[in-house]
Structure formats: structure tokens, C-alpha cells
Design a protein around this nucleic acid. Structure first.
Lengths: 231, 231
DNA sequence: GTATCCAAACTTGGATACAAGTATTGACTT
DNA sequence: AAGTCAATACTTGTATCCAAGTTTGGATAC
């Protein structure tokens, strides 16, 4: 009875807490790439032993967010040009496939879902609510996957997006680009609703490529956060 | 001096050994889905403490190969219909993008690389060397990624392929289908060399879809290895 | 003043001991 | 004989201790 209710919260280990904390610190760039972190320090900070911290480190290591160097030190992983390239290729490939599926399966309800995302996004921009704007961008891309009946595609997009989003925090003048992004969404929605897969993919790829020069600029301005070669 | 030489082998932890061992056991289906494995047992088997085994378990858990249930037991993860669908969608998406790139960038050397793979594969089939046949299939898809100048794409394909390959070990009559697969490869190579991206993608997708009925059959014949719902 | 070398402090890797929860098996009661 | 309950064995989670290697800083020799 009550066990069923207590189980979910009981499942949350110390490891989960620490891993989630570090994940947020790193992906929000409060912990910068190259920063050294110590199992002992984090353990003391949370008032636990090193063991759960160890497990949390292992989890973040498998997410490629930290670099554990045996007997040496553990540090927040720097950006890798190759990793970014791979991530962007994966996301573009998945997004293209999802767009084709969406153009194929879009119905009236789906079209309305896209339009409603865009309208809310225009509202958020007008109100300068940039947090909501980002969340709605999220929703738009998720809607595409749902319309295409490939909801799992968004899991991949989300994972790849988060990798690059950490990087983009370093960028400037994001607000100026938002109207452009909304126009992209409008174009994508139009193509999907028209069932024109190729136009949807073309618009989608153009949308994604807008990040390229931003990333290139960050790579120059924040070279210290980039690894020299892949380790 | 000698330190530099000893470091690479020193980097190999016990954790790596255990994780690799378990990985091979699971992906080769020597350890069947649902089999319960214990940290203590594996530790005794390797003559080490539970600590490195724990770390190895965490690594395999993040690869979704095992399911660690706190205080209960750890077992080899069963197949999930949803996970298979997702994996196949991801691979198809990446492969389609790689094929387009390959058709765009293929030169004489690239064409020769593809033809040589196919020739060797025909030889392997004639000699009934099925191990070599599988390895060459691997090489063919890697060659496509290299020709398309997206080598990292193969890392994704490889990861997704391994997930499904474990499943396909349960299938039967793989040899009968090999000539069909070679003809697919020939068609793909022809389209790539001709620079016809859409034909290459079409042939590639047809190639991948040959697994669909095999998987459907396995799902019926080996229902015990499939999870009821996603956990 | 500079370079070299050694020692101490800090890092993670691994082993052991204990804690907490679950499943199973046995005895006991009905 | 069947069902219930409790004890026991087994699971993973956490804490602590020791081992091994790297780095860093200071002392010493030149």
C-alpha cells in the first residue's frame, strides 16, 4: 500500500542527487570547462562519503561531461570540435528524418499544435520572456516528432541539443536572432502542413545551420574552453 | 622513459576488463536477457572486491544493457520494443544522411573502396566464411561514412547496430539472405558512384528494412526475452 | 640566481565492513 | 492441509581504510 507510494522517492539515491546537481552546474556553465573537481570536496559538500560521489562521477563520465584522469584529477570536460561536429550531424540527421515523417503524417490537429507554438513564441518574444522562448523552441521541435509519430526522435534531439546549448550560453546577442528563428519555424510549419517533405527538410536544415557562425565565433572568443585534440 | 610505455597498459583498470567481459557476454547472448547477475559473484569470479564490479555495472547500466534494481537484484536487460524502434529509427536517419553525403563526395578511390568490400564479401560468402561476411558488412557501412566525410556517423551506426545485432543472433537462416544483402550493397554502391543521392538513400533504406520481418519473427519466437513494458 | 631533486600533500583506485531493504523458506497456527 | 508470519539469506547502498601514482613546493647544490 504505502510502499508503492514511498518507493519512488526511496529510489532517489544520494547518487541521483549529486549527479543531477553536477549535471545542472556543468550544463549551465556555472562549472566551467577545465574546472577541477574533487570527489572528497563534493562529498564534504553533501555531507556524505566519497562512495556515492564516485558513482555520480562515473555517470557524468559516461555522459562525457567530465574527464576522470586516474590518480591525477577530475575536471569538467572541455568542448571538442569533433564532438560538436558529431553532435550537430546527429541532430541534423534525426531532425531531417523527423521532418519527413511529420510532413507525411501531419493532420489538422498537428498543424494547430505547430501554429500554437509559434504564436506563443511570438508572444514570449514581445514580452521579452527569453526563458519561455527557449522552452517553446523545445516544444516546437518536440511537436514535429510527435506529429511524425516518432516521439523517441525527440529524446535524441534533446540529448544533442543539450550538449550544444551549454556552448551557446557563451554566445552573445541571442535576442536579435529570435525573430529570424520564428520565421524559420513558420516556414517549417507551412511546409509540414502542405505535406512538402523536401521543403520542410530544407527549411529545417537552414534553421539548424544558423548556429554555425555562432559556434565559430564562440570557438574563437572562448578558446580556453576547447580541448586541443580529442582525448 | 619507461613510464610512458607502461602508462597505456596501466590505464586499463580492472573496471575496464570486467565491463568489457560483461559487454561481450551480453551482446553475444551468452548471458541471456533476464539473467540475474550479482556484484559479489562477478567479484569472486575475477578475484577482486565488489568496488570495481560496481563501477563496471554502472557503465553497463548507462549503456542500457543491464538493469540495476536497488536492494533487489541486477539482471541483464530484456529487449524493449520501444528501444528497438528507436534504435532502428536512429540508425536509418544517420545512414540516410551519410548516404547523401557519400553520393555527394564520392570519388574514384571511394568507389573502389566500396567495390572492393563487395568483392571480398562475395568471396566470403562463396567460402561460407560467415564471420568474415559480417565484418565486411561492417566495413561497407563504415566506408560509406568515410566517403561522405562523416566518419563519426559510423560510431552512431555501430552503437545502434550492436544493440540490434544481439537480438538477431536469435534469428535463423541468415545465410539464405546474404546474396540479397550483397545485391543491396551493389545497388547502393552504384547509386553512390553515380552521385544519385536519392537512389542511394532508397536502396539503403530498403537494405535496412530487410531486418523488419526477422525482428518481428524473433519477437514472437523469443517473447521471454522481451520486456512487457518499458522500465 | 637557477636548476635539480626529494618529500609531502593531494588525487583516484581498490578492499573491507556495515547498513538497509527484499525475497525466500521454514515453522507454526488455524 | 493450507495459509500466515517470522527469521534468514541475499541483494545493493554507504562509509571507511589503505594503496598507488601525480603534482607541487621547498630545500639544496651548483
Amino acid at each position: 500500500m504505502s510502499k508503492v507510494a514511498t518507493l519512488p522517492e526511496d529510489r532517489r539515491n544520494i547518487v541521483d542527487d549529486i549527479a543531477e546537481y553536477l549535471y545542472r552546474e556543468i550544463t549551465s556553465m556555472r562549472l566551467l570547462p577545465g574546472t577541477r573537481i574533487s570527489e572528497t570536496d563534493i562529498a564534504a559538500q553533501f555531507g556524505v562519503s566519497r562512495q556515492p560521489v564516485r558513482d555520480a562521477f562515473r555517470r557524468l563520465e559516461s555522459m562525457e561531461l567530465i574527464l576522470v584522469r586516474p590518480k591525477r584529477a577530475t575536471e569538467v570536460r572541455k568542448f571538442s570540435i569533433q564532438a560538436i561536429e558529431k553532435s550537430r550531424f546527429v541532430r541534423a540527421s534525426i531532425e531531417a528524418a523527423a521532418l519527413r515523417k511529420a510532413a507525411e503524417h501531419c493532420d489538422v490537429a498537428g498543424g494547430f499544435q505547430l501554429d500554437s507554438c509559434i504564436a506563443l513564441q511570438q508572444k514570449a518574444l514581445a514580452e521579452r520572456d527569453f526563458g519561455a522562448f527557449g522552452a517553446l523552441d523545445y516544444d516546437f521541435h518536440r511537436a514535429i516528432c510527435e506529429i511524425g509519430r516518432v516521439p523517441y526522435a525527440f529524446e535524441v534531439i534533446k540529448a544533442e541539443k543539450e550538449k550544444v546549448d551549454r556552448l551557446c550560453i557563451l554566445g552573445l546577442a541571442k535576442e536579435q536572432r529570435m525573430p529570424e528563428l520564428i520565421r524559420d519555424h513558420e516556414e517549417i510549419a507551412r511546409a509540414i502542413k502542405a505535406g512538402d517533405a523536401e521543403a520542410a527538410v530544407a527549411a529545417g536544415m537552414r534553421h539548424l545551420s544558423r548556429l554555425d557562425d555562432t559556434i565559430a565565433a564562440i570557438r574563437v572568443n572562448s578558446a580556453a574552453y576547447f580541448a586541443d585534440d580529442e582525448t
